[in-house]
Design a protein around this nucleic acid. Sequence first.
DNA 1: CCGCATCCCCAAAGATACTG
DNA 2: CAGTATCTTTGGGGATGCGG
Lengths: 207, 207
Amino acid sequence: MAKRYEQYCPMAHALDLVGDRWTLLVIRDLMHGPKRYTDLVERLPGIGTNILATRLRDLEGHGILVRRTLPPPAASKVYELTDYGRELRPAMRELALWGARSLGPPAEEGELFEGWLANAMDVVIARLAPPGRFEFRAGDEIASLVDGEVVDGPIEDADVRVAGDPDGIYALFVDRCFDLVSVEGDQKLLEELLEVAPARTEVPVSA
Amino acid sequence: MAKRYEQYCPMAHALDLVGDRWTLLVIRDLMHGPKRYTDLVERLPGIGTNILATRLRDLEGHGILVRRTLPPPAASKVYELTDYGRELRPAMRELALWGARSLGPPAEEGELFEGWLANAMDVVIARLAPPGRFEFRAGDEIASLVDGEVVDGPIEDADVRVAGDPDGIYALFVDRCFDLVSVEGDQKLLEELLEVAPARTEVPVSA
DNA sequence: CCGCATCCCCAAAGATACTG
DNA sequence: CAGTATCTTTGGGGATGCGG
């Protein structure tokens, strides 16, 4: 995993650090907080344990994450982004925002892995979200937004709670269609939130 | 090059489109205008012609670039980004900006390939550049900035012309040190331009 | 269980040669 | 010039094993 691209270019250099297969997805999963090895395996279908181990070692070597042992009685190891690693957020968000344009609603159940809702919300709405406490449920997934920050799982004292299936949540965010979800709480605030979601745009080929 | 990551996530989807090795570098080289096949080979040291051919075919299939035949007498084929492809610019810029933080000055001559200066300038200064016409020479490379837009090669009627070797240009941009370059024209304007360059920041590991 | 290391196999990448 | 064809090498995916 040493240098691949032997040219003087900031982007080539960035790709030397985080351009390997799976690497950005590992970082994505660590963006919302530290995770254990097996948590990462769950969220990265098909990764192969050796690859994950290699990626984690490389990322640690580059100062992008650190390996930490939780205090007893937990005493398990977690991987956590450094500040340097967290500073990849703007780049990842722009990339995901571009990707979101040609990503339709979830096609098969099999595509949905733990954390998908939080990841999607982080891209679509977390940038300019108005202050407030929002909780979203799409099937089994629950993710929340607290003053512009995405957090995994449910929250207390939500201003708005939205529930639906994945398609319904998709329709809500992308088309601002409320027909397939149930909303509880301050609907005005929800509408305000959806204002900040990027508008749907045409792409040449949806593949 | 079909789908690699089988999960519902905007970033995973983006990486399915442009996450293959070399792909973002190909797009980077097309950002400043259409290029021929062999132009790309020159700018991508070590790519292997078959890989480039594959990447170009995939990118065309995804609507990110088009293959165009120039009108006679040139009649050669060029690859050109579509609007959809050009919209990757913000993502690429953020990524390169992050990469620039741990990229030192050029170490060996062998790292410098055609277009490196334009690529670097695009990242470092083109975002918020003040209006004006700037021309930079670093060794053999010449790139210019016209009202915030990077163009390859020299320009007429430059407000400022800067010349030096790669290290000197690096010192100018990163440390705002004028000692290793020669400046001709409106130095005040140049200083104003350098204001927009991101400040040097510490990174945990420079590797 | 969790956190990997090992092994096997195949697919993709690098290098080179060659052709329309 | 713009690729294709071929060959070799490297790296990834999947299963399994194994110490803590």
